[in-house]
Amino acid sequence: MKQNIWTRPLYYVIAFVVASISLYPIFLMIMSSFKPSNEIFMNPLSLPKSFSLEPYRNLLEQVPFMTYFYNSVVVSVTAVLLILICGSLAAFYIARYTFWWNNALFFFFLMGMMIPIKLGIVPLFILMKDLGLTNSLWSLIFIYTATGIPLSILILTGFFRTMPIELEEAARIDGATDLRILWNVLLPLMRPALGTVMIINFIQAWNDFFFPLIFISNEMKKTIPVGMLSLFGEYSADWGALFAGLTLSSLPMMILFFIASKQFMEGLTAGAIK
């Protein structure tokens, strides 16, 4: 394949420019976390005058960050796992079989994305209360699973469709059950898609603050974002501590994303599909 000699350098220029724009605000966030509140407003763009750890100290004094952190981990990890299980089972069913109701089922799931769920907050709150789940992390786990399912089914169904059907035929001849085919044959090939679903739902659960605001009033059950919100006052906020908190709360996700992109998203090598 002959290529114009300018093509590759152009690729690098585009990638580099976009990457800088992508990263700059994050750089700004981390930098701001080392500044005291008033310096953020006076010199918002400059490097911190001196790297002060005080915002971090303030943060840890003001809020039980480790408790929030623990709750966030429990909620996000459990919700993501439930989403992966429920989502891949349902998507497999929708993509691999052609029962007459399958399109309707697919669409039924998609509808979940088309409605502002905030509308149903009062019935939802009463439901959670009746189930005894208010002030329990399970209320968050269930609602994140439920809100994550539509997107996951959309993505996974699409990718199940791209899998060559020949793959499973051999397995079926050997008498493998659907579950076995799904687990042993298809899922390992779908790592990029699974990784994406995992990451995207993890982020959603990790960053959401609306549901915990409503369902959780017990300080010991709060997740990071809602804990951070207590740093926003009506007219003022301790922006230093806030940025420190946001930086700290983004870190685990950045780490997770590195791992996930190594584990799941390296892409399929030529030998993977045979």
């Binding site: 623990y70 429990v74 796992l81 992390l137 390992p188």
Partner: peptide, 26 residues
């Protein structure tokens, strides 16, 4: 992948176990 998943699962079970204990006290 499978090893990963199983590790993941065990991790969660431990975590949720702990948290529900804490929940009842609270």
């Amino acid at each position: 992948t499978k090893g990963w998943m199983i590790g993941f699962l065990a991790f969660i079970l431990i975590l949720t176990g702990c948290s529900s204990d804490a929940g009842s006290e609270e």
